[in-house]
């Protein structure tokens, strides 16, 4: 189990599907927050600025968060 936890915490060796999904969740929260604050949905640059990510990273992570879980993750969770 220690082995597995180390594998999960070491960011670089984590599978893309998992890591992007975590970023995807942060994006969703921040987007809701900004929408409330501004009274409209943020533009992609406004969101990127608030999250210190590039607009392209946001697009990629948002998509990954939307996809069904891979078998890989189901086993771990």
């Amino acid at each position: 189990i220690g082995e597995i936890q180390r594998f999960i915490r070491d960011d670089g060796s984590v599978k893309v599907s998992r890591s992007l999904k975590e970023i995807g969740n942060r994006i969703r929260k921040k987007k809701d927050e900004l929408t409330k604050d501004m009274g409209r949905t943020p533009t992609i640059n406004e969101l990127a600025l608030a999250l210190e990510l590039s607009p392209e990273e946001i697009v990629h992570a948002q998509e990954a968060a939307r996809l069904p879980h891979s078998i890989h993750e189901t086993v771990y969770e």
Partner: peptide, 20 residues
């Protein structure tokens, strides 16, 4: 399909659209 979504959205992002 998912690849196509990301590709178009990333390109279009250059115009700074809203998330909607």
């Amino acid at each position: 399909e998912s690849f196509a979504r990301v590709t178009v959205a990333a390109f279009v992002s250059q115009l700074d659209p809203t998330m909607d």
